[in-house]
Amino acid sequence: MAAKVIQCGPYPECNMTLMLFSNVLNAAEVRKCVMGGEFEAALLKTSMILEPFQVIVAANRAIHLHRIKKMMTKNVHSEVLFSLSPSKNISDSFRKFGLADNETSMFVVIVNDTDGSTCQAVIDRVKGQLTDITDVGKYSDLPTIQKVYKISETELSVCSAVDAVVSRISSKDIVTV
């Protein structure tokens, strides 16, 4: 199992590295590494993710805002986390979508890890199993996701839950739901 490196569509010179870890024993320690600046990455709560595409749309938005210098948060990794959230409140977004200390799975996004060194540093640090990113669906908490993104059954009669979530992420700065 390996990390997945995806080229950024609108900015082909940029890329995102996505990783999913299961059976994680040291989430708190990994979080400290990011907060202490040992490596730069976005650590996401797996229960808030339906599919990797949801994260890709958020990371794509963050890379765009980074490139045009219109980010709301301090770096592109915190912007990935903020982009995932439908809320304009930064600390609320971090709380709802960021990895918590007691969790046993985590989704990691690294933007522009050109030489792969950050990815390696994360892998070395995490006590857990690198898992196929598409398995993230096993951890999703659909009722909470529906509540946080305010998705009604009426909406789900015309689109999938991922489509509903993705529409909100991409429209975040234009529409408040």
Binding site: V57, H64, T154, C159, V166, S167, S170, S171, I174, V175
Partner: peptide, 29 residues
């Protein structure tokens, strides 16, 4: 366009899912 697409879909009207908006180049993906 973005606003109405989202509001319509929230009321159960089918509209395309928006993937990305680039306000600088006025592009809707």
């Amino acid at each position: 366009e973005i606003r109405a697409m989202l509001r319509c879909r929230m009321s159960g009207i089918l509209t395309p899912t928006v993937y990305f908006v680039n306000m600088d180049s006025s592009c809707i993906y």
